[in-house]
Simulated scan of single mutants.
Amino acid sequence: MHASYYHKAHACIMVFDVQRKVTYRNLGTWYAELREFRPEIPCVLVANKIDADIKMTQKSFSFAKKFSLPLYFVSAADGTNVVKLFNDAIRLAVSYKQNSQDFMDEVLQELENIDLEPEDEEDRPDQEQEQHGRPESPAPS
């Protein structure tokens, strides 16, 4: 993914498909990339498609334990735990945003506060000059 996808993110919901092992194997790459761009935001891990095999909810997924991530077993198809997942993720994101100590958040906030427009009329170029790229000629006397 491109770095811009992480811009201003306050939480991450990382999803893998319990029926496709490749998605579980990709978690390490995805997580490393997330932490490169947003090292401090909260992240939750989601095991999706439990409706296809409810026995998956009995499995222990080491990735969640290794990185101390909350793990949600959900089914997007039948809605199992989807509302709970989003409610919890929103709470984490709001808490993070209100209490962030992340240096990048501070930098982004400062960049947003920069006023690029001149404040005084005197600082603005003449509109005619702006339109034609050259100053107006003085009127003959």
Rank of each mutant, 00 (worst) to 15 (best):
R38N: 03
V44T: 01
F73V: 04
N48P: 07
Y24F: 10
E33Y: 05
N26M: 09
A47R: 00
F16T: 01
A77S: 11
D53K: 13
V74T: 15
R20K: 15
F73S: 12
F86V: 01
F16C: 00
V82K: 03
K55Y: 11
R20N: 15
V18M: 05
V82A: 06
A77N: 10
R38H: 05
F67Q: 11
Q19H: 07
C43M: 10
K21Q: 13
L34T: 01
N48F: 04
D78A: 09
K55R: 14
G79E: 05
V44N: 00
P70G: 03
V44Y: 00
S68I: 05
A89P: 02
N26T: 07
A89T: 04
T80R: 08
A47P: 03
L45W: 01
D17K: 00
P39M: 04
A76H: 03
V46I: 04
C43R: 07
I50C: 07
S60M: 11
N26C: 06
V18Q: 04
C43G: 07
K84V: 12
G79L: 03
E40G: 06
M56V: 09
R20H: 13
T23N: 10
F61D: 11
D53Q: 12
F37T: 01
N81W: 01
K65I: 14
R35G: 01
P42K: 05
E40C: 08
K55I: 05
A89G: 03
V22C: 13
K59F: 08
L27C: 08
K84M: 11
L71Q: 02
K65A: 15
L27P: 05
L71D: 06
L71H: 03
A32S: 15
T57P: 08
L69W: 05
G79C: 02
L27A: 08
P42T: 07
